[in-house]
């Protein structure tokens, strides 16, 4: 039994490092291929439209309710658990800091992991199992340059933009709840937001979103390129891309929090 455990552990360790090696090589090939985006600007714009503009409705819904629920929960903590010791004058500060540092970067990244990362894996996986990627190779077109670089650049650049958009919408959601349901005046809410406002909070959130956006696209591309086993394989690749991207975002969030704060 112990032998099989060690065998299993050894196999998993080797598989992990092989996977990391594959992803690292792909990242290297993408990075050296980035100058091609000027030539392939039409491909990049298409992916930016898909990853960014087409994600706006979903990001809007997620952000407005994230802001709303965080305002409601913050008020509950202040009034209920803390017995009113903390004034509602601080509601905007608490909610705003949470939105800038954690809520918008992480939740929007997870939404994008589901919508964009998984779709990249499914699209490239389908291309792999139907020999379309081999056809690109046969036409002397580098699939990394043609398929992965535009998706990576789109993920890397559009997620920070979506996060900035999410900052605004989430604050709007929080304000609506604070003003109409909790009777916090507009000047009190936004005055509180302004008092705690720090450009470093926005910077840290954007740093996270750059990392999460690039990472999500990279994971989607890597898993898509390695897909095998027909329709079943594409299904597995899609799930794997979402699970790995989500884990990457949550672990990465912790690591970046340690570095940035």
């Amino acid at each position: 039994m112990w032998m099989s455990f060690w065998q299993w552990l050894g196999q998993r360790t080797v598989a992990f490092f092989r996977e990391m090696g594959t992803v690292s090589i792909l990242l290297y090939r993408i990075l050296i291929g980035i100058p091609s985006i000027f030539r392939d600007h039409h491909l990049v714009l298409k992916q930016m439209l898909e990853a960014g503009v087409n994600s706006l409705p979903l990001v809007s819904v997620v952000s407005i309710f994230t802001g709303a629920v965080s305002a409601w929960q913050a008020a509950y903590q202040m009034e209920g658990l803390m017995g009113g010791l903390v004034s509602m004058n601080y509601l905007g500060s608490g909610v705003s800091a949470a939105i800038f540092i954690e809520l918008s970067p992480v939740l929007v990244a997870i939404v994008i992991a589901g919508r964009v990362g998984a779709s990249i894996a499914a699209e490239l996986g389908t291309m792999r199992v139907t020999e379309q990627i081999d056809a690109l190779e046969a036409l002397a077109i580098d699939p990394v340059r043609y398929l992965a670089v535009p998706r990576f650049v789109a993920g890397w650049t559009m997620l920070p933009m979506l996060v900035v958009y999410s900052y605004l919408v989430a604050h709007l959601g929080a304000y609506v709840v604070a003003h109409f349901l909790l009777d916090v005046s507009t000047s009190t809410f936004f005055g509180s937001v302004q008092r705690s406002f720090s450009i470093y909070n926005i910077f840290s959130g954007l740093v996270k979103s750059f990392v999460f956006g690039g990472g999500t696209a990279l994971i989607g591309c890597s898993i898509g390129f390695q897909t095998e086993g027909g329709a079943e394989g594409v299904g597995k690749a899609t799930i794997k891309a979402f699970v790995f991207s989500s884990a990457f975002i949550l672990i990465g969030d912790y690591v970046l929090a340690m570095i940035l704060f």
């Binding site: 291309m127 139907t130 020999e131 379309q132 081999d134 056809a135 046969a138 002397a140």
Partner: peptide
């Protein structure tokens, strides 16, 4: 890869399932 791509330009290939970009 660079030289391989140069050589591949001498080739055309018809795949079993045609492998058209859908």
């Amino acid at each position: 890869r660079k030289d391989l791509f140069r050589i591949r330009k001498k080739f055309g290939m018809l795949f079993q399932g045609a492998a058209l970009f859908d």
